[in-house]
């Protein structure tokens, strides 16, 4: 126990960095994922194809590969970063956006097709049909899978610890090395701080879900 209390500043530092990585990557992934989902249902075949290829490739390869790409391959192509955090954010948001695209797409498909037909029949453009009619109604079905994905994102951010980012897991690794006699408690502390983010997220899901319920 003592090892957690004695090292609270490191934990707190790692916690904040994990929170930072998760929030920034989460926001980027939500935006990119929604755009990818929109591309997937758009009338333009090239956009549909691109979105499908992106989602299938990224979703079906390990996150570690995304990290290698962002941290090793991109710099070799001339895209360099001052901090490894940037690479971590790129990898995490690129990876997570593929899952979000799938969740949003299934939500879009859950809205009866008549809603889109009615919107088109009064002269709305594709972007209006999607943003005014379909997405607001898809939200309700999308919230639970979306929160699951965001919870996974918080945990996935631990991979950044292996790429020189001192987030929660990275700090935990250092603390474990320094306190070889109390590794179990070090890890309990790490787990506790992850739960501090993920449990409220799950709670948020049920609150939002109730708020956006639509009667049919």
């Amino acid at each position: 126990m003592d090892v957690i209390i004695e090292n609270l500043p490191q934990y707190w530092d790692g916690f904040l960095r994990t929170l930072f990585l998760s929030v920034i990557s989460g926001i980027i992934a939500l935006i990119v994922g929604t755009v990818l989902a929109a591309a997937r249902v758009s009338p333009v075949a090239a956009l549909r194809g691109f979105s499908m290829a992106y989602v299938e490739i990224v979703r079906n390869t390990p996150l570690t590969i995304a990290f290698f790409f962002a941290a090793v391959v991109l710099p070799r192509l001339g895209i360099t970063f001052q901090q490894f955090e940037v690479a971590a954010i790129i990898a995490l948001s690129a990876y997570t956006s593929a899952f979000i695209a799938e969740a949003v797409r299934s939500g879009v498909n859950s809205v009866p097709v008549g809603q889109a037909e009615a919107a088109r029949s009064i002269g709305m453009k594709f972007s209006q049909v999607l943003s005014l009619i379909i997405l607001p109604q898809a939200l309700r079905t999308v919230i639970p899978p979306l929160i699951n994905i965001l919870i996974a994102l918080v945990k996935n951010s631990s991979v950044a610890g292996a790429f020189y980012v001192l987030e929660l897991f990275g700090q935990g690794k250092q603390l474990a090395n320094a306190n070889g006699d109390a590794v179990v408690w070090v890890l309990v502390g790490v787990a506790f701080f992850y739960l501090l983010i993920t449990i409220p997220l799950g709670y948020l899901a049920s609150v939002v879900e109730r708020k956006v319920a639509i009667a049919r």
Binding site: Q115, A118, R120, S121, I122, Q137, A215
Partner: peptide
């Protein structure tokens, strides 16, 4: 889209925006 705005459509299943 512009042309559809000139053509009103009423569906069997109403399709009001829920």
């Amino acid at each position: 889209a512009k042309l559809r705005a000139d053509v009103g459509m009423v569906f069997q299943s109403f399709n009001l925006f829920a």
